[in-house]
């Protein structure tokens, strides 16, 4: 089938797509956006988290056929003209990255949280990250990074 949708503000028209091909595979294999990782492919790890029309979803659970007309934001889309954005910067500063496999998904989940709630508590951050596993178990620093990013966003 043929689908037209946007990724990080850029329109893509893809032909010959199998309807059940997942968004995660499309991003990586067809569009070369390998920031999105595929861990479990069953919605259980969160490594492939992206935003569709601003809502956080697992890209592995989105069939290609449902993408028509939608807007996808991946970790590559977080970058600004000045470089990495403040959530990513906070991850760097807090040392919230070990092997890095979960990082893109964590950052997308953090973005979804911060756009809904500018002043989250650590409890709310933990709750917002419950769909993202870190196999290095570096959760504490990840939570710290999101907390710092929130403070930075408020300009405190």
């Amino acid at each position: 089938m043929e689908i037209t949708f946007e990724v990080n503000g850029q329109s893509h028209n893809l032909a010959g797509v199998a309807p059940l091909e997942s968004l995660a595979v499309i991003l990586r294999d067809r569009l070369g956006l390998t920031g999105t990782k595929i861990g479990c492919a069953t919605g259980h790890c969160g490594a492939c988290s992206v935003l569709i029309d601003e809502r956080l979803v697992n890209a592995c659970l989105v069939p290609a056929a449902q993408l028509q007309g939608h807007q996808v934001t991946t970790v590559e889309g977080l970058e600004t003209s000045e470089g990495i954005d403040n959530v990513q910067q906070a991850f760097v500063e807090a040392g919230a990255v070990q092997c890095g496999f979960c990082t893109a998904g964590m950052e997308m989940a953090a973005h979804a949280l911060l756009s809904a709630l500018s002043n989250p508590t650590k409890e709310q951050i933990r709750s917002a990250l419950t769909g993202n596993l870190c196999r290095c178990t570096g959760y504490q620093k990840i939570v710290d990074a999101v907390y710092q990013a929130a403070i930075g966003l408020k300009g405190v």
Binding site: G43, G46, S49, R55, L56, V57, N58, L61, V62, A109, A112, A128, T130, G131, N132
Partner: peptide
């Protein structure tokens, strides 16, 4: 249910 991602979809 599940996770924020699953609850959104």
């Amino acid at each position: 249910v599940g996770t924020p991602q699953v609850r959104n979809k």
